[in-house]
Design a protein around this nucleic acid. Structure first.
Lengths: 233, 233
DNA sequence: CGGGATCAAAAAGTCAGACTTATTTGTCAC
DNA sequence: GTGACAAATAAGTCTGACTTTTTGATCCCG
């Protein structure tokens, strides 16, 4: 999506990264650089660069006389967009989508509250535009058009929060929303209640009503949690 | 803290990474691999590995015939623990601490609510132990002892939430709390109200009262925001 | 039989040099 | 001015030799 396999080492990463992220190599598995270089038909230099990148993501650890060992999932840099993409592309997809949705449910309401305080006039306008776009595509199986505006809406909220950490979650939210539309069962038009909520959030942000924007966004994320059957007994 | 400069390329990273993270090279600055290799007195192979790591963090972009260009801060992988550490070590420290504290204020209350539902008996016991440790070190300038138990407390909450994304923020929270104790003005004993809140959170989690755990934790994070003068007009 | 020192093998780490390739920039003709 | 072509440049790649660390086995001695 953003960083295709640029260069040979990138090509290797796109093959090896998803495999590790999918758990094909159990934690503690040992790989050898030379063997990998042969397998992917690249020089050791290239293979070493790829291993360095995997190491920086905490997916593997390289030690002398031992080799390249796969680290347990609990140590991975799970916020690395590349790792997230790799996990979403493999067997870990369901769990990844669930944990990301819970993350969204924590972040987005707070971000919306901040956006109500700090959003610029341009951002307010863009937000309203997105909400109207969602309304326009909410009926008649225009799921792709709806998705585009939905993603844009949440990106604007996260950016307008003024918090750099929130802003960088835009890509993650985009992946979750896209995943929901493309992979999960989504034959019907989006829930009208959700569409209304987005419009109301845009209004609240424009009005500078932080409490209301946060509350409404929380309702949106609760809906997202319910879609994945993440509920409290 | 966790990954000291292992190997030559790690040594280079520990020097170059903080410099870039501190903004010493404005976005768009162009570095050349050969020149860097000379400057750090390493071979090009080693320098290339270091550049690859910086590239995977989205701190720089390497392009043929151009060189290694520094990317704008908005594109950095700001959730990479290494990047966070580098930024905390440099001129960006205040802004980084603020944005991380806002992040905490979004995540931790939700995590505490989930912990109330999913915490094991062991985790509840550990939580109580941490809270008691905080009480024990809350008076008489035992800041270091207090910090240790404070960090452990929040780690347990994040782990007990059962969400892998939350769990991986333990290190970040530890950095923030340590930073507050060590760098900011912290001559006095911790706020007694905050200590009480931690004890109450432990109780709520043990009792399985998610709403109460979330609400109490929100009070704790509001206090943290106030310490940094992050308030709403 | 146990324990510590020593030694050998294994794999990553490092370096140097030659070569390839893509990209930019400048130039020249049209 | 515009288009094509050529030169310069810096990253990218490969190879081979060498070093260093770590492990694990062996051997000697108590």
């Amino acid at each position: 999506m953003s960083t295709p396999g640029r260069g040979l080492h990138g090509h290797v990463l796109e093959s090896l990264g998803p495999a590790i992220a999918a758990g094909e190599y159990p934690p503690g598995s040992v790989l050898r650089t030379d063997e990998l270089a042969q397998r992917f038909d690249v020089s050791r230099s290239v293979m070493r660069e790829a291993v360095r990148v995997l190491e920086s993501m905490h997916l593997v650890e390289s030690r002398r006389r031992v080799g390249v060992t796969v680290r347990p999932k609990a140590e991975w840099n799970v916020y690395d967009p590349q790792v997230i993409r790799w996990r979403l592309a493999g067997a870990d997809r369901p769990q990844q989508l669930r944990s990301l949705t819970v993350l969204r449910s924590a972040i987005e309401p707070v971000a919306a509250g901040l956006a109500a305080k700090y959003a610029t006039a341009d951002q307010c306008a863009e937000l309203t535009e997105c909400a109207l776009g969602m309304v326009a595509h909410s009926r008649g199986h225009q799921l792709e058009g709806y998705l585009i505006h939905d993603v844009a809406f949440h990106r604007v909220i996260l950016n307008a929060s003024g918090n750099e950490m929130f802003a960088r979650l835009g890509d993650v939210v985009a992946e979750v929303l896209a995943g929901r539309t493309h992979h999960e069962v989504m034959f019907e038009d989006p829930d009208p209640a959700a569409v209304t909520l987005h419009v109301q959030v845009a209004e609240a942000v424009r009005a500078g009503d932080a409490v209301r924007a946060e509350h409404l966004t929380r309702e949106i994320t609760v809906g997202a949690l319910q879609e994945l059957d993440i509920l409290a007994p």
